[in-house]
Design a protein around this nucleic acid. Structure first.
Lengths: 349, 349
DNA sequence: ATTAGCACTCTACGCAAGTGAGTGCTAACA
DNA sequence: TGTTAGCACTCACTTGCGTAGAGTGCTAAT
C-alpha cells in the first residue's frame, strides 16, 4: 500500500494532536480541527490503512488511534519541522548558560536543569569523556615529611590530584627528577594510552633511590588516571514525569525512576550513543525497560575535541521538533562557550 | 490522665504492629497477638484513653488505631530498644565500607547506598563541611607561559586546584615567592577565616612585579576557597518509596521526590541539624512538606574534626530501633576509617 | 476494674446499568 | 471509483447500590 500525500497529512495531524493531548485521536476530531476537507468516514478508511501499514495502533476497538513508534520515526525523519527558536528564547538560553561559566561542572549541571525546565521532561548531562585527553604535565610536590601530592594536568585543562603517604624517605630533588621523568614519558599520550603503559619496570633498574619512590607513586598515578576518565552524570527534572499521563501509574513511575537511578548503567548507555543529535524511539532503545521511552541526546564539544552529552528522556509522545531545536541550540552554545574558555580558567571538579 | 504501665505496653504493641503492617491496629489484634492477658474490650478502653491523651489517632470510626507523632516520639525517647546488630550484620557493613576506602567520596556514596539497601528507605550522605578545615599549604605551579596552577592543600588532606590564565608575564621565582607569602599568611587559618581576609591590599604596595600576579591570582584563590566549602550530597534508594504504602499515591510520591530533588534546600536542612544521632518525626520537621516524614541523621567525623552526615528519610512509620542502630554502627565505622586514613591517601574529588 | 454482648459506623469491594466516544460496514451519492 | 451518511456495535468508564467485614463504643453483667 502506498503512503499517499493525504495519508501523510492525516498521520501528521494525528501525531500532532496526540502529542498535545495524550488521548487517542478519533476521526471526527481530525476532520473538525484540521482542515483537510474530507469527512470522518474517509479519514476512518485512511486510518484503517495506516493501521494496517503499522503507523497507528488501537488501544481497543472503540478508541481513537495512537501513533506507533514507526509513526514517530517517520515523523522525526521526514515530517517534522525544526522549530526556529525565537530571539527571546535564544537569548534566555544563552544568558542562563553564561551565568556560571567559570565553573565547568556547574555549567553542565545548569544546562541540564535549564533543559528540563524548558521541555518539562527529565533531562541529563554528561561531562566529557577524557579518553582522548592528553597528559600535559605531571608534578610531585612535597607537603610534609610523609606526604606528597601527585598532580596531573591534561591538555584540556583538567587537573587531578592525589595526596600520597610515602613510606620511604624522599628528597625534593628525587621528586623533581621523577616528575620530570614521568612528564617526559607521558606527555602527549592520552589517558587511555597512559593507562596501558606502566613505566614502573623501566625505573626498577634505574637509580636505586628512586625505585622505592616510584613504587609508592605509580599505583596511585594509575588510579588517578582511571579517575580522570570518569564522567559525571547530572540529572534534573525527575519529578516532571509525575505530570506526564504516560507515567500516571505507580508501576510505570517506579520503573522509570528505577532505571534512571542506576546511574552507572544509564551513563554507559549514553556513552555508547553516537555523537550529534540522536533520537531513539521506543523499541529502538535496545533496553526493554526503555521500550516506552524516547531518548534525545546531543553532543557538545570542549576545546573542539572532548565530547560530552546532554539530552532528555520521556514518553515516545514528545515534541520532537521543539526539543531537538532547543538541544541543538544549547549544545552549540556550550561548544562555543568551552571553545572561548579553552586555555582559560577551568576549575577541577 | 496517667500513662500507666499497661497503657505503655498497649501503645508499644500498637506501634510495633503498625510499623510492621502499615494497617490501623484493632483491639482484637492486640489481644490476640500480644500476650497482655486482657480482653479486647479492656484494650479498647485503654485505647480510647490513649487517643484522648494524643498518642493515637483514628482514621475513621470503624478503623483501628494509628500511632501519632507524639507516640513515635515517646517510643524513640523511652520505649525503643536499640537493636544490637548481629556479628554477621556488622561484618557485612564493615566489609562493604572498607571496599573503596582509598576514594573518600566513593566511600561516602557507597555508605549511602548500603544504608538504603539495609533499610529499604531513601538514604543520603553529606560530605563533611570544611569550614573548620585549616589551610596547610598553598602552591603556584608553572604549566606553560600563560598557565599556572593554583593548588591548596588543607589539614584534612583535601586538595583543590585551579588552572589560571595569567595575563602578565611571570617568573618562576615570583610564583614561588607569592606562594610562600600566601602560605605564610593563610597557614593554620580555617577556610572561613581565609575567605574574610583578602591579602591583596598588602601586596598592592609591595614589590611591583608581584602586584600584577597577585591581582590575577587572588580572585581565583577566593573562588577556590569557596568551592572547597561546598559539600556534596549523595542520595540513594529513591525508588524504594514506591514500595512503601504511605506513598502509594502519585501525589504523595511526587511531592516526596520533588522535595528531595531540591538538593540545595535539602542540604541546607541537613547542615542545620545538630551532630550525633538526631531523629525528627512528622511535624517536628519544621517544613510543611516533611510533615509526613521521619528523618534520622547521624554525623561521622573525618580526622576527628570535620563533620559529615548520613541518614535516611521515610514515613513516620519506620523501624526506629533498627535503623538508629545501623546508622550508629555505620557512622562509627566511617569515623574510624577516616581516622586511620588521616594523613593517608585521600583523593581529591 | 474487667469483660461479654450488641448495635452502630464506615470503608472496601463487586456488580449492574447507563453513557459516550469511536469504530467498521453498508449502501447511497457525485 | 472515491467519498460520505447512516447505523449497529464495541468497549472503557462512571455511577449507584447492596453487602461484607472490621472495628468501635456503650451497657450491663461479672
Amino acid at each position: 500500500m502506498e503512503l499517499t500525500e493525504r495519508k501523510l497529512k492525516i498521520l501528521q495531524a494525528i501525531i500532532s494532536d496526540y502529542v498535545r493531548t495524550a488521548e487517542p485521536v478519533g476521526s471526527r476530531t481530525i476532520s473538525k480541527k484540521y482542515d483537510l476537507g474530507i469527512s470522518p468516514a474517509t479519514i476512518r478508511n485512511e486510518m484503517a490503512d495506516l493501521e494496517e501499514m503499522g503507523y497507528l495502533t488501537h488501544p481497543h476497538t472503540s478508541a481513537g488511534r495512537v501513533p506507533s513508534d514507526m509513526a514517530y520515526r517517520l515523523y522525526v525523519n521526514a515530517l517534522m519541522e525544526k522549530k526556529e527558536l525565537s530571539r527571546e528564547e535564544k537569548s534566555i538560553i544563552s544568558q542562563r548558560l553564561q551565568s556560571n561559566v567559570h565553573e565547568f561542572e556547574k555549567t553542565i549541571e545548569h544546562a541540564a536543569s535549564l533543559l528540563s525546565e524548558i521541555t518539562n521532561l527529565t533531562s541529563f548531562a554528561l561531562t566529557p569523556t577524557k579518553e582522548e585527553d592528553a597528559l600535559r604535565f605531571i608534578n610531585l610536590l612535597p607537603v610534609d615529611e610523609k606526604t606528597i601530592v601527585l598532580m596531573i594536568v591534561s591538555e584540556s585543562g583538567k587537573i587531578s590530584n592525589t595526596a600520597l603517604t610515602i613510606n620511604a624517605p624522599y628528597s625534593e630533588e628525587n621528586l623533581q627528577l621523577l616528575a620530570k621523568a614521568m612528564t617526559y614519558n607521558y606527555k602527549g599520550k592520552t589517558i587511555s594510552e597512559a593507562l596501558t603503559n606502566n613505566i614502573i619496570e623501566s625505573f626498577e633498574s634505574d637509580i636505586a633511590a628512586m625505585s622505592g619512590l616510584a613504587h609508592d607513586i605509580m599505583p596511585n598515578f594509575m588510579r588517578t588516571l582511571e579517575d580522570m576518565l570518569n564522567v559525571n552524570l547530572y540529572m534534573e527534572g525527575l519529578s516532571n514525569i509525575f505530570d506526564i499521563p504516560e507515567y500516571n501509574d505507580l508501576q510505570k513511575a517506579k520503573s522509570f525512576i528505577e532505571m534512571l537511578s542506576q546511574k552507572d548503567i544509564f551513563t554507559r548507555k549514553l556513552l555508547e550513543r553516537d555523537d550529534g543529535i540522536i533520537v531513539t524511539i521506543g523499541a529502538e532503545n535496545a533496553d526493554d525497560i526503555m521500550n516506552d521511552c524516547a531518548l534525545i541526546t546531543a553532543s557538545y564539544h570542549v576545546d573542539g575535541k572532548l565530547v560530552g552529552k546532554i539530552g532528555v528522556i520521556g514518553p515516545t509522545r514528545m515534541k520532537y521538533g521543539e526539543i531537538t531545536s532547543v538541544i541543538e541550540y544549547m549544545t552549540d552554545n556550550l561548544s562555543d562557550t568551552f571553545k572561548l574558555e579553552s586555555g582559560g580558567n577551568d576549575k577541577d571538579e
